[in-house]
Design a protein around this nucleic acid. Sequence first.
DNA 1: TGATAGTGCGCG
DNA 2: AAAGCGCGCACTATCA
Length: 815
Amino acid sequence: MTVLVLVDAPTKADDRRQKLFSSPEAKLLLKALEREDVPYKVASLYPSPIQTKKLGKKDQAKFHDYLPHIAKKHKCQTVILVGAMPFQALTGKGGVTKANARPIEKDGLVYIPCVSPYAATHDPKVGWQLKVVAMRAREVNEFGGIPFEQDLNSIMVKDKKTIEQLLWALVGELSFDIETSCLYPWQTHDDKGNEAPAQIKMIGFGTLKEQFHILTPNHPDCPFTEKEYFDLLEDIDRAITRNQVRLVTHNGKFDFLWIMAHYGFPWYEHQHYDTMLAHYLLDENSRHGLKELAQTLCGAPDWDVDKDTKKGATPDLEKFVRYHAHDLYYTIALKNKLVKMMNAEPRVKAVYDHILLPCSSLFTEAEYDGVYIDVSKFDEAENYLRNELKQCEDRLKQWGSIEWGSPKQLAKLLFEDLGIDPPVMTEKGNPSTSESALNQIDHPCVGDLIKYRGAKQQLSFFIEGWKPFLHRRKINGEWHYFLHPSFKLHGTVTGRLSCEHPNLQQVPRDKRIRSLITAPPGWTLIECDLSQIELRIAAALAEERNMIEAFVRKIDVHWLTAIREIERGGGLKELVIDTAKTWKQLKKIEYSEAIEVLLEMGPDAAAEINAEWKEYRKKAKAINFGYLYGMWWKKFKLYARDNYGVEVTDEQAGASRTAFFELYPDYPEWHKRQKRLARRDGYIETLSGRKRRLPDAMSSFDSPARGAAERQAINSPVQSLANEINLMAALQLRNEYGRDKVRLSATVHDAILACVKNEYVGEVTLRLLKIMERPELMDVLDINLLVPIEAEGKVGPWGAGVSLKKWKESLRVQG
DNA sequence: TGATAGTGCGCG
DNA sequence: AAAGCGCGCACTATCA
């Protein structure tokens, strides 16, 4: 049957119909269809050019009704909607790029949205998108509708017989999947402020042979009363527990979290396999969606449907169930495939078995518990920031009345109206108004500007930004507030976790904001972090003798770098000698001797004598990380200028880099080794066995892309392992203490935040520090480091906690 | 008008 | 030819 290619309504100014037939780009879709052997006809959405590029509401409605008529006239059942306008006519919405090649069924016709081929002039990706459209058109045309899996055996659980059938089937290995009204289990309103409660619409279990669907009372077609439904859930829960059912999921943390939040069943304890996490370890560079993976790895059809159907919000129940059945079926099919793939990589499998899969359950629990927000301080902080913002605005008024948050308006005011020379340009050549640029401007407004921005950003990030996620819960008759950030275990290419809604890992160190996060009544928040873990790991991997020695001798390496850097230039004579003299209570001391004294006393003692030392250590920290991971001296120059207002000459900057590698002479060899391995294999391995695939490193010629891959080959094994040690410790903490004593709140790359029942704070903190210094899983994964690992603990609200010792003292004082 | 890309900044 | 790595979020500019 012929497929109809329906082109944009042409405009008077820009006759796309003309272009579709004339320009080579516009012919791309037609060529793709020819290559797929799809017979087609071309038609225009509207016979004569219209006045505007945008469709008004009236036009939209007209075209919408017109669509089936065109199809009928041309005797076509499949219609390719080319460009934004026909898509908008059908759906009433924009977003054709996202909908590209995803068929939509309506009035017995199948519409295939397609991006405008004309876009190929400036976007090479479009060529591929058009090809996918052509392939989809062929499939739809051959199938006579949207293709779906033929092998499915959907069973709707609705009566005594089907309930029996389901309960009998709950043995062995089953896929598990739910459909929900939204993504956040504690949502009450949507982003437009309309009431939109979080609801589970359907839950399901499946195998390759049969797929069971249970509509919840939130769905209009649910065959059960509330009571019947919850009785059924109890029966299912008993069967899962009694039969030790092994649940297979795709991103099961999502489903299990909802089940926990809405029903309270800890089904996450039965998680047996997760296809998303498995695929993440097998290919961290690509995407991990179930549909995409099933299509590429199992040859599945594209069974995606529109959002409303997915949410169970359309009357087309059959479509909803079929969608769910595909999810259940292909979760198992995909698992079978991934198991085979992973068996070929036993070390990767060990990371999956021992870290990633257990973390899925661990973080389901952590997200369920959430982090506790001190709401009284929340209001206090909000008032403070609003006041601060107003004061800055009042003071800024004298320089002009503009939107101070707009970089464009600000740039105009500063560099045109006030005639200041722009010190920094953005990449596009506009005068920059970034903080480092402002710092270089000598004008009385900069202080207020920076303050204004800071307050405004904190307000919108942490006050306004958090509000939609605040979850209110009554405990002992009083309201308490929690955030439930979502941790993506597959969020980064290195194995770190990412965090969103909101992102807890970017909360500023500012006490006012950070200490909003604490523990609920009866519990205390603790934070334990791995001190200087990345440097320790880098030193161990590179077998860097000087850095290892520093760690063994418990010298702060940032401090070591700082002092050696100062010594090299023979600078800061007065400060060095003064500080050493005060510390040793001497009348006189030589410079070289004073340097050794400083090394010995450490940064904290030095800072007590002169606060300037803090800055020098901070600077050295940036140097350590920068040079370690391949920073070039030019960047160091910029860094010194922007952060310390120090103009360093090229020679000085170059010398600083040379000095770093003289201080730590074993790093260059390690850099070379990592590059060599990445180039030879196309990937590098972390000590745990995790792989970081870097195809760009295999390039035979030197290019920026290869350079980037090589630097990742140096950084990844370090960053990966640091995070893995942290996760291993978090897992062990969970294994050693029950939920009645300890609850994980969050991890922040090299730190663990947990709530501890008050009576156990001392014991648990000490134990956690011990665990972090040597998690048992390191032995299981056969990881040995040449450097000692050290951990540090703080007790109390986040960012405002005190050492365990001080905390115990304060308890004694209080009695 | 609304989705996408770029910038800037918070964190490790 | 260009040279720290890894994120998420708010805001603006840009394009169709």
